[in-house]
Nucleic acid binder design. Structure first.
Length: 235
DNA sequence: CGCCAGGCCGTGT
DNA sequence: ACACGGCATGGC
């Protein structure tokens, strides 16, 4: 017997995905006009609302700096000024410079060449960059480079806690553990579907998270609450 | 005024 | 391996 109904944790996560699709529909992520712009957004939105990140991106666009060359040619002080709206400019500006330096030195400045690297070594390389942790690395891999990796964020951690996505009593799960859970939920789908599925999965988690997964729980009208906690194995 | 945002990093256990 | 505080700015 499981603690919460008859569904295994991956089954519960898949059911959650279906419920979220019904509630929110297609999300068409990532909002950007190029892979490089996705990278910029991934850095700028760290612990920052997308609205604020979008302001910085608008500043960069107006300055013609939404390209590797644009970031490379901007003096660090000007870069900091342009991305000020999204906060942490003293960390994020050098981090963006470091990404471009890596792209130039190791991939001839080509995002396509970067994307052609196998997923595992590529993830390790991204994680070695300053200002790139697991979520930023995976967001870049999935949304800029089209590699099939799950993106785990704070909202999914809260959902996993509050909805007991694991077998046992709620307990905090590590990044890689939750990643394994997401992978298991979609493992049966064809390889060609992995990227769009994982894209939609994280986008939906953010959609519900913004609305109902505050730091201090405000789950009252969460569309997941009745169904996920029920004991009906509707899959 | 307060808390929070599509995290990461250094330090301490 | 985890928990914790600092980091900057804008919205509500």
């Amino acid at each position: 017997m499981r603690a919460k109904g008859n569904l295994s944790p991956p089954q519960r996560l898949r059911k959650m995905h279906r419920l979220l699709e019904e509630a929110y529909g297609p999300q068409h992520w990532w909002p950007a006009e190029s892979p490089f712009e996705v990278v910029i957004g991934a850095y700028l939105t760290q612990n920052t609302s997308w609205n604020a990140a979008a302001r910085s991106i608008a500043n960069l666009r107006a300055a013609g700096a939404l390209t590797a060359k644009g970031i490379r040619d901007l003096p660090i002080g000007q870069l900091m000024a342009l991305i000020r709206p999204s906060g942490f400019a003293t960390r994020k500006a050098p981090a963006l410079k470091a990404f471009v330096t890596m792209l130039d030195a190791e991939f001839d400045g080509s995002m396509d060449a970067l994307a052609a690297t196998p997923t595992n070594p590529l993830r390790v390389r991204l994680l070695a960059l300053p200002g790139v942790g697991p979520e930023t690395a995976d967001a870049i891999l999935l949304y800029a480079l089209n590699h099939p990796v799950p993106v785990i964020d704070e909202y999914l951690r809260r959902i996993a806690m509050r909805h007991s996505l694991e077998d046992a009593a709620p307990e905090r799960k590590g990044y890689e553990q939750l990643g394994d859970l997401v992978r298991a939920a979609f493992a049966a789908d064809p390889q060609t579907a992995q990227v769009p599925l994982l894209n939609q999965q994280h986008a939906l988690v953010v959609a519900v998270g913004k609305a109902h997964c505050g730091k201090v729980a405000r789950c009252e009208e969460c569309p997941l609450l009745p169904d996920l906690l029920s004991l009906t194995p509707a899959d």
